[in-house]
Amino acid sequence: MTRRPVGTATRGTTNPNRLRRMDRWIAAAHGAALRRGEAPPVAVDLGYGAAPWTAVELLTRLRTADPRCRVVGIEIDPERVTAARPYEREGLDFRHGGFEVPVDGPVALIRAANVLRQYDEDAVAEVWARLCGRLTPGGLLVEGTCDEIGRRHVWVALGPEGPRTVTFATRLGSLEHPSDLAERLPKALIHRNVPGEPVHAFLRDFDRAWAAAAPYASLGARQRWISAVRRLAADWPVCDDRRRWRQGEVTVAWEALAPRL
């Protein structure tokens, strides 16, 4: 008897290049871990949507980190799987399923972008635990939210042990204030952007650092962002360095932003 997939269908909204910021971060931050294994690493694009573009692009970008990578696109809507099948090729296939992740054996990477946004906040921990349970030792779950064309994106990176970091990424030319990213916080954090919660304090301090870095605006938005993040790092556990800041990113330890009980 075939089991019913775990989860509910998303709206399916997708666009080419929508997840480029997340993909590039994964290749840079997790590439060494992908290469470390003896077997070719398997990555899952969970809930890729009405068109398969994000899975196709994930394969291309991960293969810059490890040419052996395979990608499996998983969708809970069987019609979307059927529509994606013509795009299958060596290293890329599509399967019907949900949070149970119907792939043989553990996987090195699960990317779940814009999947949990429709769920209740109370459901997040259970989904995270289920997905992390499918990872290899040292594997990575990346779960987050972005806008329709990928200008603003926030994601949580998790390992088998649980959440590790939160990354804020943006197209700097479109940014007025770092707190503009609040609307793209993942489900675990978006309802916590209120006074008294760490993520609210972080975005407040980021806006202040951005304002203090205003003199750098004459050198461009990138230099202003770098200066603001450097100021921010004096009070918050920033995990990355200037190489990533130049991309319009900043990554912070999860423990600093985790919701208060």
Rank of each mutant, 00 (worst) to 15 (best):
W245P: 00
T54N: 12
H153V: 04
G173F: 11
Y48V: 00
R20N: 11
A33W: 07
A43N: 03
A253I: 05
A209G: 05
I149T: 13
V154A: 07
R11M: 12
H153A: 10
A188I: 06
Y87F: 15
R151D: 12
P160F: 01
L46C: 02
E255L: 12
A234P: 00
R85T: 14
F202M: 14
Q118L: 14
Q247A: 11
G162E: 08
E255A: 15
P5S: 12
Y87M: 14
V194D: 09
V250Q: 03
N15R: 15
R11Y: 11
D66V: 09
P102D: 01
P163I: 06
R260F: 05
C69T: 06
G47E: 03
P237E: 00
E88F: 05
L116H: 06
A39V: 13
A221R: 14
L34K: 07
P137S: 00
F99L: 06
R21C: 05
V166D: 03
A157N: 02
V229L: 02
A65C: 09
A84K: 06
A125L: 09
P160D: 03
A233D: 00
V71A: 08
P195R: 03
G144M: 03
W225N: 04
K187F: 01
W236Y: 04
G139A: 07
M22Q: 14
V199S: 06
R85I: 06
A33L: 11
A9R: 15
A182K: 03
L219W: 11
G173A: 15
R21T: 08
L232M: 01
G162T: 03
G97M: 04
E126G: 12
P67Y: 09
T60F: 09
A217H: 13
A32L: 12
W245M: 02
G12W: 04
T60E: 15
R95G: 08
W245V: 02
V154R: 01
G248F: 02
A33N: 09
R242P: 00
L203F: 13
E183C: 07
L189V: 04
A256P: 10
M22C: 14
L257I: 15
E197C: 06
R21K: 12
G196F: 07
V127K: 02
V229E: 03
E176N: 15
R111F: 04
D147R: 05
W128I: 08
G150E: 02
R80C: 08
R11A: 14
R85K: 15
V42L: 11
L92D: 01
Q118P: 01
G133Q: 07
D66F: 05
L232H: 00
L62I: 05
R111A: 14
E38N: 10
V72P: 05
G173C: 07
R63G: 01
L59V: 05
R164A: 13
A256I: 10
V71D: 02
A209E: 07
R24C: 11
V115G: 04
W225F: 09
A253S: 14
W245L: 06
V154D: 00
R242H: 04
V238E: 00
H153Y: 08
A29M: 09
R184L: 08
D77L: 09
W236F: 01
H191N: 13
V81Q: 07
